[in-house]
Design a protein around this nucleic acid. Structure first.
Lengths: 63, 63
DNA sequence: GCCCAATGTCAAGCAACATTTACATAATGA
DNA sequence: TCATTATGTAAATGTTGCTTGACATTGGGC
């Protein structure tokens, strides 16, 4: 799964810590997801989508 | 996470085994997801969405 | 009554997700 | 220079997703 988290964060000028706080997860989890070390759970993917106000499919894609 | 798998299966007259075969997972996994025992991984959620040709958000919802 | 497909459930095990703690690096600014 | 912030990474640990194999129940058709 590839994702656009880094760009979406940059557009809002959020640090990984800022996003982690909004998502209720650790900074390391945000970093790991962003750098492709693993995929978020489905509930976390929903929270991410809500946070950026866009569909999951516009943030993540198979790759 | 609640989901509409049972209804979507019924609309297509697929058994849990049929769906499992299409998704490439075990029947028990389909059953567990359908009965809410656990959530699918994000990649599996994508495969499910592709299989039913609709967005993830139209199949799963927070509950 | 019997058989069979479908479903639900359990247990044990492995792989993946997510956590905390910690350390290293680069960039910024006082 | 020194302190701070942001990011990347690692190890150890706990939780969750998915597996196989097995067993019980239900409903329909013969």
């Amino acid at each position: 799964m590839k994702n656009r988290l880094k760009v979406l964060r940059a557009e809002r000028d959020w640090s990984q810590q800022d996003l982690a706080d909004r998502l209720g997860v650790s900074r390391q989890s945000v970093n790991a997801i962003e750098t492709g070390k693993y995929d978020p759970s489905l509930p976390l993917a929903f929270t991410i989508a809500e946070t950026f106000a866009m569909p999951i499919e516009e943030i993540f894609e198979r790759g």
